[in-house]
Design a protein around this nucleic acid. Sequence first.
DNA 1: TTTATTAGATGATATATATCATGTTAAATA
DNA 2: TATTTAACATGATATATATCATCTAATAAA
Lengths: 149, 149
Amino acid sequence: MFSKACEYGIRSCIYIANQSLNSKRPSIKEIAKEVGSPEPFTAKILQKLVKNNIIESIKGPSGGFFINVENIHSIILRDIVFAIDGPGIYKNCGLGMKECSEVKPCPIHNQFKIIKNGLKEMLDTTNLHQLTLGLENGMTFLKTENCDL
Amino acid sequence: MFSKACEYGIRSCIYIANQSLNSKRPSIKEIAKEVGSPEPFTAKILQKLVKNNIIESIKGPSGGFFINVENIHSIILRDIVFAIDGPGIYKNCGLGMKECSEVKPCPIHNQFKIIKNGLKEMLDTTNLHQLTLGLENGMTFLKTENCDL
DNA sequence: TTTATTAGATGATATATATCATGTTAAATA
DNA sequence: TATTTAACATGATATATATCATCTAATAAA
């Protein structure tokens, strides 16, 4: 569903939000480690998020990435998905037709519309703060593989 | 969501089912034209569907592809999706974690589960015959682009 | 001012998917 | 039997995404 970049991007934002709530500014290296993503690719993704005003960055010895607390409450999943993958996920035809519409629908148009509406609902109503809660109390995780074994 | 191969595959099956109901056996060339897909790639996809017993084929001058009428009523979208893309769509984590589960859930696990259940519902309950109905009465389409302009 | 650290930028490489090309095999027909 | 048509098989190429590599710019601290 989401591109790999988008998956890493969402997980990174959740981690950064959680660290920001504890007044910390994690580095690319740290974020990549916690998320389980390749560092150079994570850097690229984070830069895109900065460009799109989802997260903020500071260069230098005490630099890193952070999100203001107000933003943690207002940034929703849709913001992140649109920044990385664009708006296609809300518009694209389930069977890959270039111009599927209500006027010229594909055979699964109406059923797929229900799926898309459910997805839209989730992306439009889930903010970063909600996503940090589970992380904070150890009920949710950003990576499960343990390469340290 | 679905791979390009899977999108073409579903559309091809709907077209073949529709033609089979009219006792016709369309060729690769015809199917690719009606679906708007590249012929060699469509051939490859169709062969995979034959291997997985979704459709049947006949070689030779009056050959082509077809689906028995009983099968048109019993083949569901899930069969086609599993044949081409595998079962991942039902299992994979929304945020790309390799081993997301109820025990170690990702931050969107429960919300995404609702989306996945909706998708599963659609794929498990939609058979090919239903999908031919709209096509037959001109209410649904398999391609919308017209390259003949 | 220099050094160290960090993000930023950009091009290169790897990998997976999509698409193309060519030859082989099977089947019907004359 | 030869010819034609169609599916089948397999390798090659193109494209998009994922990942890597290297250098530059910004910033804090000594």
